[in-house]
């Protein structure tokens, strides 16, 4: 039997969605304004701001660097986070709560403090490897997100299914890939998405650790806003919104997992 949804509920959800989406439409409209400065509503129509942004090597370089950084950080966070989450949820370890608290502490300490502390540490170590510093810094703040979401999945794994598979003669690697993996996959994917987004959007850690050769998108956006508040900023914002939409579509179509399922 299918439950009917109240028209009132539909209306309320519609209004909420409108409130959420409306601010995203504003930069899209401002980005097509044919003026040397940002105006709303837009005046005239032009796509030249998109052309300028896409042709700008600084913008392209920052965007590609952020993608590379976020992808590497996500891979490392998953490599460290999945075994860590499995260990913390499936076994009793001495000092388990302390370990968990330590791992999650970057979520509690203000990121700007974490950033300056990391810069001090790297300086004392004599490190000049900016890219490595950024990877470490971003991994520190992304790892808690991976561990939280993957841990939640491991907690919900039905141990009876594992026992049943083992009793039926399935070796451990088959139990892991055919029984456990399908149950934890959504949590891992959610952790990967969070990790990627947190790294891609990070400003406070990058502000301390980046340099002119390693300049992520959020820092670039800040400098562009200071340079000139023209519609090219709205064009960059619009491209980032479109990129996020594309990411959602890829996740849904390629991985076959809806965001609604991840959120549930």
């Amino acid at each position: 039997m299918t439950a009917t949804v109240s028209p009132w509920l539909k209306a309320i959800v519609g209004v909420i969605l409108l409130i959420v989406v409306a601010p995203l439409v504003v930069p899209l409209l401002m980005s097509i304004s044919d003026t040397a400065y940002i105006v709303f509503p837009p005046r005239g129509f032009t796509l030249k701001w998109y052309g300028e942004v896409l042709a700008n090597p600084e913008a392209r370089g920052s965007f590609l660097f952020s993608l590379e950084l976020a992808a590497i950080v996500t891979a490392i966070s998953l490599a460290l986070g999945i075994p860590c989450a499995a260990g913390l949820t499936r076994y009793r370890l001495p000092g388990q709560d302390a370990i968990l608290g330590l791992i999650l502490s970057p979520l509690i300490v203000p990121l700007i403090v974490t950033g300056v502390a990391l810069l001090q540490l790297f300086s004392l170590l004599g490190s000049r490897a900016t890219f490595a510093q950024l990877i470490i810094g971003h991994t520190v703040i992304c790892l808690p997100y991976v561990i939280r979401s993957v841990s939640a999945s491991f907690v919900l794994v039905d141990r009876n299914l594992e026992d049943a598979a083992a009793i039926m003669g399935a070796p451990p690697h088959v139990v892991a890939t055919r029984v456990i993996w399908p149950q934890v996959r959504p949590g891992i994917l959610a952790g990967a998405i969070f990790s990627f987004i947190v790294s891609f959007d990070d400003y406070p850690i990058s502000m301390w650790l980046a340099d002119g050769d390693h300049f992520p998108v959020p820092l670039y956006l800040y400098t562009v806003i200071e340079r000139s508040f023209d519609p090219s900023i709205a064009a960059i914002s619009s491209l980032m919104i479109l990129f996020a939409l594309l990411l959602v579509l890829v996740i849904e179509k390629v991985f076959g997992i809806s965001l609604a399922r991840l959120a549930s």
Binding site: V116, L119, Q120, S123, L124, G126, R128, M207, W208, A210, D211, G212, D213, F215, L219, T223
Partner: peptide, 23 residues
Amino acid sequence: IVAEEGFTLANVGKMRATKDNPK
């Protein structure tokens, strides 16, 4: 020359954080 764009307070903060081994 590797140039990093910032602002006064952040630039002072970076000098403080790397005082013992200036970057």
